[in-house]
Design a binder for these strands. Structure first.
Lengths: 184, 184
DNA sequence: GATCGTTATGCAACTTGTTGCACAACGGGT
DNA sequence: ACCCGTTGTGCAACAAGTTGCATAACGATC
């Protein structure tokens, strides 16, 4: 039940059309809750139906025509309620850890390459986040409450990528160590 | 497409019935790929249909009767292929980070408590993992290839929980710092 | 031997997320 | 006037995950 709330948050930060939202999900918000344009359009329809958002009156309402949405008071209330509701963390679901466990059974041939590939992807993501941090949160912009909280979220992403790069490096050391031992 | 492979891995480690699998998913394997008994039964049916596993002949085959499954060669091949296939890491989807971002917009009232709750849950999970590490992977059991890999997977879980406890602590410091400032 | 808790398997309906494609407006370029 | 790439919205079918409930065997206990 998070996607509608992700959309409400995004729309409160800035009213947008479906495609604009999609673009924003590919950048900032989507870094913590990804979504395709299909999900977004479908959810925008439901949110409008529920009276949480409304489309700004367009000159010519027709298909293929841009439609801007804004959040209604009911939507803001719903979002505030959601933030206040307590919700348990979901258990991890990570395909790479799972595959490594499977590799322990059926063999690790070629797996080191896959680990290296993931390492470089996570390094790239880490760099991306650090770029965002420098641009969006220089020291002088860490004053307002909202900015400090958004910065905290971004730091979550940064630390998460740091975890992955560290673990992948460790894993590769394990693999290389094994290869060396096999070489002797 | 990971659940069938999680099941194949579990069954290769030890042939089991549906309910036994469910229990094992609640402990070790499920720490990295959780699943309900419904998903598991359904998937067992599909895997049997596909000829990847088979039910061991039971004395009285009937409903409510325990059914043990074992992996067939075709299943092992499928698992090995999956391990070799390369697969991109999925983007993060984390409700807590999202909620914090929403809180930056609609207000953080009561959120520190939620952070504290999550912190204690993650601390408990971390302790659980560390217990498993001591019991399952004492220094003398880190010799075989398979054990070292499984230990690596567990360390992934441990480091991930460490990340969360660290970030949550940081976040709470931010919140408490804010409160102190407000006090002055 | 009737009832009750536990173990065990499974169906059905629903929600959420993914993939592929269709359709419409708009602004060039030729 | 026609085509084409881009922007923008959307349907339909499917895959994966969740929730609630039904069914059946088995042993204990009253």
């Amino acid at each position: 039940m998070s996607l509608p709330h992700a959309i409400l948050t995004a729309l409160l930060e800035k009213p947008s059309s479906g495609l604009e939202l999609t673009r924003r999900f590919d950048r900032s918000i989507g870094y913590f809750w990804s979504a395709t344009h299909q999900q977004i359009y479908r959810e925008l329809g439901k949110l409008e139906q529920a009276g949480h958002i409304r489309a700004l009156p367009a000159p010519v309402p027709s298909r293929g025509q841009k439609k801007e949405y804004e959040v209604l008071p009911a939507g803001r209330t719903e979002l505030a309620d959601w933030v206040r509701r307590s919700e348990d963390p979901k258990p991890i679901r990570d395909a790479l850890l799972l595959r490594l466990r499977a590799a322990a059974v059926v063999g690790t041939e070629g797996f080191a390459d896959e680990l290296r590939r993931h390492l470089s992807l996570h390094r790239a993501q880490l760099e991306e986040y650090r770029g965002m941090e420098e641009r969006q949160f220089p020291a002088e912009r860490r004053t307002t409450e909202a900015d400090r909280l958004r910065h905290l979220v971004l730091r979550g992403g940064i630390e998460l990528e740091r975890f992955w790069t560290a673990w992948l490096t460790e894993a590769l050391a394990e693999f290389d160590g094994r290869d060396h031992r096999a070489d002797c």
